[in-house]
Amino acid sequence: MTTVLVLYYSSYGHIETMAGAISEGVRAAGASAVLKRVPELVPDHVSTKAGYTLNHQVETATVDELADYDAIIIGTPTRFGNMAAQMKNFLDQAGGVWARDALVGRVGSVFTSSSSQHGGQESTILSTHIVLLHFGMVIAGLPYSFKGQSRMDEITGGSPYGASTLADDGNGGDRQPSTNELNGARFQGQHIAELATALTTAKMRKAG
């Protein structure tokens, strides 16, 4: 069975919710979804004061296990148009994985969140793609065959680069992922799982 790692960092739960939807899409494609988070770097007293989600029910990933999966879908909030430091720190430790060419030919994808509608979602996804390309991964996003991509009747995340959500309601309050955004995440998860299965099958045929 094709195995897909949904690897994420989430401060306030928005990316965690999207990661759950991504995993649902992976399973809908008949693949195995493994949901894991990267370690927190912020000290406990700081994260508590900031209101971070601390009661994690999801296991922390290790760098060495990255090579165990047929595809990796990364979820990270936007930090000034780039991935969160927690995710960057984790990926920066993967030099050994890179040196072994362990991820070459695996499928990679990214999803994100930002507080505002134009808060750097696309640049965050695209800059994360750069890291995945250095690993030799095959990059895929959220294709326009997901028709929610083109909605104009509501404010919504999502781009051809990957699923996304908005975390602020515009008045400084919390906004949770919308139905359309979650549907986009599910679509992306299924799409990546199907691509990974096709590539894995082709490699097996070639090897056989």
Rank of each mutant, 00 (worst) to 15 (best):
D92V: 09
V138I: 12
Q93H: 15
N183F: 04
L133T: 14
E59H: 07
S23P: 05
Y52L: 06
S159Q: 10
L91W: 10
A28H: 05
G184Q: 02
I72V: 11
R175L: 15
I155T: 07
L142E: 01
A31F: 03
D44T: 15
G157R: 06
K49R: 11
S114P: 13
P177G: 01
S123K: 09
L126Y: 06
A84I: 06
I130E: 14
A185Q: 06
S115Y: 15
E59W: 09
Y69D: 04
P77R: 10
A94Q: 08
W98K: 00
T78P: 09
N171Y: 13
A207H: 10
S159K: 06
L41I: 15
T62D: 08
A50L: 13
G51Q: 07
T179N: 11
W98I: 08
V58P: 02
I130Q: 15
Y161T: 06
A84V: 04
M137H: 13
E122S: 11
R106E: 02
R100G: 07
G173P: 03
L126Q: 07
A198W: 02
E59Y: 11
A167P: 02
T156L: 04
H56V: 06
S10K: 02
S150I: 12
S145F: 14
S10Y: 02
D44V: 15
Q149C: 11
V38Q: 03
L103T: 04
P39Y: 09
G136W: 01
G120H: 12
S109Q: 06
T60G: 04
A193S: 04
S47L: 12
N183P: 05
V131D: 07
T3P: 01
G208N: 14
A21Q: 03
T200A: 14
H14N: 04
Y8V: 01
M83G: 11
L166W: 09
P143F: 04
V63T: 07
N89C: 03
T201R: 14
Q117G: 09
S115V: 11
K203N: 05
D64C: 08
T76W: 01
H134R: 06
G157L: 02
N180D: 11
A102H: 13
A193D: 00
L166G: 00
T78G: 05
L5A: 03
Q190N: 12
T200P: 08
A31W: 07
L142W: 09
P77V: 09
E154L: 05
T62V: 07
A29Q: 00
A185S: 05
A28Y: 04
T62K: 10
Y52Q: 03
E122Q: 09
E59I: 03
D169W: 14
W98A: 08
L166T: 08
V4H: 14
G172W: 07
T2C: 03
G81L: 02
Y144L: 06
F80K: 12
I125C: 01
L126T: 15
Y12N: 00
D153N: 13
D64A: 12
G157Q: 08
G158W: 12
K206D: 15
N180K: 04
T165Y: 08
P43N: 10
A99H: 14
A28G: 06
N82V: 13
V34I: 14
S113H: 05
N180V: 15
G51F: 10
E24S: 07
N82T: 15
T76D: 01
A84D: 15
G148K: 01
T60N: 03
L132I: 05
I22P: 11
L103N: 08
Y144E: 03
G95V: 05
T2W: 00
V34T: 09
I155N: 08
A198Y: 01
V107P: 01
A207R: 14
